[in-house]
Design a protein around this nucleic acid. Structure first.
Lengths: 201, 201, 201, 201
DNA sequence: GATGAATGAGCTTTCATTCAT
DNA sequence: CATGAATGAAAGCTCATTCAT
């Protein structure tokens, strides 16, 4: 009976989570506008109308599929900055964590990369846009700290550099899907090297 | 009369080009799927149906709006590689040109960045996808040449570095639209510095 | 100058008639609804808008293209009935004339056959429907006369027989267009034989 | 309860079939091009968009509405030819069956008569055109058999006669719709008499 | 007489969403 | 929980028609 209860509880969350996982894949492939609720339903093995038993709207599915992973990422980033012994160590760890997170949730990363405009325009997805902005701001702060401490070059345009870095990180999902795969460590190492090296005097 | 003839000649190409320019802006703002032909028509000051006097389909508008600028960019890239005195000079010039091109056609750049998936999936837009792939390949070749010549570090994953670089360049449109603008030279300099520096031993 | 005037006069009617002839072909091929004014214009070598210099509407083109030939046919039918020495001779001549007329204007015949419904429904084309009805009535009268005179069998349902005959005649255009052509005399003979023979005791 | 189950089972096929039946009527009245999906939806009591829950396209509706009845007719024709004791008997039965089938599905017959061109031109409707051609061919074979056996006159142009016959049969729907109705037996008898009589020496 | 550009109504189709069963 | 059927709004596109040049 403990077993039954457990599997029941598991199943309860599972159905929603299953749908979310499947939706992430479909939406990563076709975009938010391009992925229809029929597509999502079909991939989940139910009719599109049945999705509305689990979710209030398509937007809500998108939100629930993105929010946990970027919240987690943002909180980890906060922790990293708080605990890091130096800006260099902080940035290194931020990049590394970002890449590993992307490897774990490549579909979410793809959506995040491609639909920034949607997050700005669709009311319901504002939290996503907001967390993204906060994450970028955090990167900027770390780089600025490095400039002050002398670890990073001072003759750089921080905004431009950080945005370019961010764009590079957002594209990393490419290495964890489809053909030409890489190991997360490999990608993380390459990007840490690229960006940290470029900031050093 | 020379003047009249001239303005007449200008008007001949003008209507189509006007529409294309306006469409680029609308589509950059809302995406290919998100921008309706009604939106485009309204921005151009005509009814959506009237667009079909000038173009066969929405897809054709997208194609005509993208193809010239990426063709130009690709051909310039070929010329740069052919004429550059060294891989370092070549890469520097590639980045600089890319940024300036982006500054000249920011809407096209935004679309190019956000809709890569669409180019792959929509038959009619295949030429765009193809040119993009060829441009990436050209960057890879230049970086590889630099590694062989010893100008660039040999301990890098070229694919990862070039893709990250490309992602950074594709995002540059952000600095030429909306608020927080930068001068093209400034952005070009920052990105040249970022990427070339990171490749040097 | 007589020549010039003549060729001018000829040209004046010619343009309209040219268009009508070309329209007949296009409409026979694609139907009244299916043939667009663009199609017609293109076949005539002008833009669709230019058709409206010559005609008030698409409907008017259809009307002008059909009316002359069915008016002529109706009047000939009247004359035949008036002059014929017997119902058998009359029917024979009606069928023969109908086939030859069809051979001369196969496109009109095709339209007449396929769009009877349109003539009923479209106000402007009412004259066509009316003339058709009158022609059918004339056939009925001739057959009835033959029954009274004893030349034709009296044990037939005149309405049914005449309609079937008419359907057969309307389909004759098939032998004067496309592949598998026949000579008008051949078709006329075959149909005279078929229908007259079937009416004889 | 048996009753409930039955009506349920009936309802299962019912919705699609209801729509098809209603579409047949609307399309017979206005033609394939002239009948809009809105017309069909309205006649079926739903919005046009809802039709697409049941069918993929308007073309599919047309196909499903025609195919069963002409398939049935073709197969019956095959059976008749196989079982008939003589060409005369075969032709008699072919005509009789055709008329009764037309009486049962007058809307389909009207469409079949008026839209032959459409079946040729619209890819999706090719099966209809094909079956029609095969049916005509079958009639030709039967008449040819009769000529060889001496039952039918040998001095006729078989193609012309059979086509005229076919045109007459296709028009028979007129007697089963609107005013001036006839009983199927009456029409069948009249047409059998007309065509068989005309073929006999 | 003809063109080029546009209108406006209407077309087929798509899609997020709702709801009785 | 899920289905089957529908809604209603909106999408891309077509087409007869108009009109200044």
């Amino acid at each position: 009976m403990a077993r039954a209860a457990k599997s029941k509880a598991a199943a309860v969350t599972s159905r929603r989570d299953e749908i979310i996982e499947v939706a992430a894949q479909v939406i990563a492939e076709r975009g938010i506008k391009g992925a229809t609720v029929r597509d999502i339903g079909q991939a989940a093995g139910i009719l599109s109308g049945s999705l509305y038993y689990h979710f209030d709207s398509k937007e809500q599915i998108v939100l629930e599929l993105l929010l946990p992973s970027i919240e987690e990422q943002y909180e980890r980033s906060l922790a990293i900055r708080a605990q890091a012994v130096s800006p260099t160590a902080a940035l290194t760890e931020l990049i590394r964590t970002s890449v590993h997170e992307t490897a774990k949730h490549p579909n979410q990363a793809v959506i995040l990369r491609n639909e920034a405009r949607t997050f700005r325009d669709v009311e319901a997805l504002a939290p996503v846009a907001e967390l993204r902005a906060k994450t970028v701001a955090l990167y900027v702060e770390v780089v600025n700290a490095g400039r002050k401490s002398g670890e990073f070059r001072s003759d750089i345009d921080v905004d431009i550099v950080v945005r370019a870095m961010f764009d590079g990180l957002l594209g990393a999902a490419r290495w964890f899907t489809g053909p030409r795969r890489r190991k997360p460590e490999q990608v993380a190492a390459a990007l840490v090297d690229l960006y940290v090296h470029s900031l050093q005097p």
